[in-house]
Nucleic acid binder design. Sequence first.
DNA 1: CTTACCATGTAAACCGTTACATGATTCT
DNA 2: AGAATCATGTAACGGTTTACATGGTAAG
Lengths: 199, 199
Amino acid sequence: MLLGLLQVPASGYDLKKHFDCTVRFFWPAELSQVYPTLQRMERDGLLKSQLKSSSKGPKRRVYSLTKEGRDALLAWLRNDPALGDQRYEFIAQFFFMDAADDEHVTTRYITRLRGELVRRLETYEQIEREWLGGEESYPDPDSSRGFHRYMALRSGLLHMAARIGWCNDVLRRLARRHKGRTRPGKRGTQKRIAGRRKI
Amino acid sequence: MLLGLLQVPASGYDLKKHFDCTVRFFWPAELSQVYPTLQRMERDGLLKSQLKSSSKGPKRRVYSLTKEGRDALLAWLRNDPALGDQRYEFIAQFFFMDAADDEHVTTRYITRLRGELVRRLETYEQIEREWLGGEESYPDPDSSRGFHRYMALRSGLLHMAARIGWCNDVLRRLARRHKGRTRPGKRGTQKRIAGRRKI
DNA sequence: CTTACCATGTAAACCGTTACATGATTCT
DNA sequence: AGAATCATGTAACGGTTTACATGGTAAG
């Protein structure tokens, strides 16, 4: 991430700010990780730094890419997509939730989850509105840079929308299950074949 | 994860196998992590263990939940959904890909990404077919246990479908951009207002 | 006899978080 | 005078991966 952001020279502090308005949506990082990583990358020859006195506050150590750093970035970009091993704790909680033995726990869980996902979706939609509204500070979606960044935003939007759709599906099925048990109609009295009902 | 799986007593080796056919889709783990974690949890009073000689191979250390372990599991399930800080390296690669300055890199990247996502989607669809086909070894989706597990699978399915949809959108837009540049028609000659085109 | 599977671990390295530490400048 | 922001870091802890280490049993 740092190599990617350092196409313009910047200090650790700068980089953290850039992180927080762009990259953090798919890769958060703390200052306490940024500084040592910059030091290590300089040691490894991917970066070089210069001390510059700033207009306000103490001196800034401004990093920029070396040839090796730029090569490392390009190599990473040409790698296979790094899908890796994602960990979704919220799915795990849901997966084991039958142990709580209470449908209300599940309903409350999914409702809260959906609330948080909707909040995130709205954040993304707000950014998209500003972007397409032509705000300065966002790169033109017609440029190569703007296209890649804008589509990254779109990926977040579609991801949230899909997760919210799943929440709605879960809630729908929970309601149907509930109805089936409390007011048994045709559905509730269906025969099961070998203890298992086909959907 | 281990607490969730240990609703039935099991050894580390067993747990790893259960991981690999269920939990790993949203939380992978290695044996070298399972064993020390079980030891730590026993030290912390969440688990108790018994040495049992097995029919084949060496003795097995079989773990089961203590009261505290079960309470810890239930507390986790009643927590807020743990959305946490996801890291999506493949989005990061895409985000910075303008640095490669070559649209073919992007096209190839998204094509490969979509291939891998489709492979995963097909895995999930295969599992769903077996499940709904009434295979033994899958819990009844009408039971509480089966419902939670089946919907966890559905979340993976919808997730993959959404990601694939995004890939298709990216490819569509790349093709349109390409056409706009190589055979400029009405689209390609559109005037830009202040260097920025509204979509 | 060799391969695969059963079964349990340890060690080293890296990644990431939280908390701690320091000190200057600018704004209210 | 106090709060926010600029600016740079260290330390301790826990999670995760890769590689290493060991040895028994069963099937081809």
